[in-house]
């Protein structure tokens, strides 16, 4: 009799606190455009065609500056590439191959078991080539940014000329969605940045969506398996809860 308002009070306060926190976080920056992602929701899966197009963009655009050190070429099976395609992709780059018999470092063609080749040997080289800014590793970028896929998409489409009253640092670009609005990365994607082989029109929005789908997959390659397993496990647990509750009711019927 007394527990109900108590429970409500606490639940309300907890939810209120949570919502306030979320709202406050979101209000800090420009509102992110809403994108329909194939991978959102409890039944979401990656749109593999989109992820493959995204990989093409990564290969041709992103990988000139950004590493993806956590990924192996063999992982590309996860976006639906065949073994032969993966072998060809891996073999198209030269990777460090250990040392030769004289102890000199050698390069060899990549294999599926190799990590994605990094564009720079180390952070210093990366900074030197990019005006002092370090292009972040993209392996888990989607998880490492507030807003996740929505934010990355917004970043891709958020470039414009700076407002008249804004003083830009030399070498910086204006981006509506980047914290502080000054980003060292020049606009990476434009309409027609890549040629898609499947006939999709390479508009900026399409490219952004594809590359973000690829990055989301790269960050959480287990997501589809995870969600599918989750649905089964929760259904099972609901059943078990019902059964256990029935046993409890039966047993306690003697007591009440």
């Amino acid at each position: 009799m007394r527990r109900i308002p108590l429970a409500r009070l606490i639940l309300g306060a907890a939810l209120g606190g949570l919502l306030a926190t979320t709202a406050a976080r979101a209000a800090d920056d420009a509102k992110l455009p809403k994108v329909e992602w194939s991978f959102s929701g409890p039944f979401g899966t990656y749109d593999l065609a989109s992820a493959q197009r995204g990989f093409l963009i990564y290969q041709q655009v992103c990988s000139n500056c950004h590493s993806m050190n956590q990924l192996y070429y063999r992982n590309l099976e996860g976006i639906g590439l065949t073994e032969d395609q993966i072998k060809a992709i891996a073999a198209s780059v030269q990777v460090p191959g250990g040392v030769d018999d004289n102890g000199q470092p050698i390069q060899r063609p990549g294999r599926p078991a190799d990590h994605f080749r990094a564009p720079f040997a180390n952070d210093q080289a990366a900074r030197a080539a990019n005006g002092g800014a370090l292009p972040p590793d993209q392996s888990v970028l989607e998880l490492a940014r507030e807003g996740g896929a929505d934010y990355l998409y917004a970043l891709m489409v958020g470039y414009s000329d700076p407002p008249a009253d804004m003083k830009m640092q030399p070498g910086m670009m204006y981006n509506k969605y980047f914290p502080g609005h000054q980003i060292a990365m020049p606009q990476p994607l434009q309409d027609g940045s890549v040629q898609y082989t499947d006939g999709t029109k390479p508009s900026l929005e399409q490219e952004a969506k594809d590359v973000v789908t690829f990055l989301a997959w790269a960050a959480e390659p287990e997501m589809v398996e995870r969600k599918q397993m989750g649905v089964k496990i929760i259904l099972f647990l609901l059943l078990l809860t019902g059964l256990t509750y029935a046993v409890k009711r039966k047993l306690w019927s003697d007591v009440h």
Partner: peptide
């Protein structure tokens, strides 16, 4: 629930059996 051999008891036992099996699978 009547005698231990009555309907209530066997129903309960069946429930327990199913619940136990489910928990075991889990």
């Amino acid at each position: 629930a009547g005698s231990p051999h009555g309907e209530g008891t066997s129903k309960r036992d069946f429930l327990k059996l199913v619940t136990g099996a489910a928990a075991l699978v889990g």
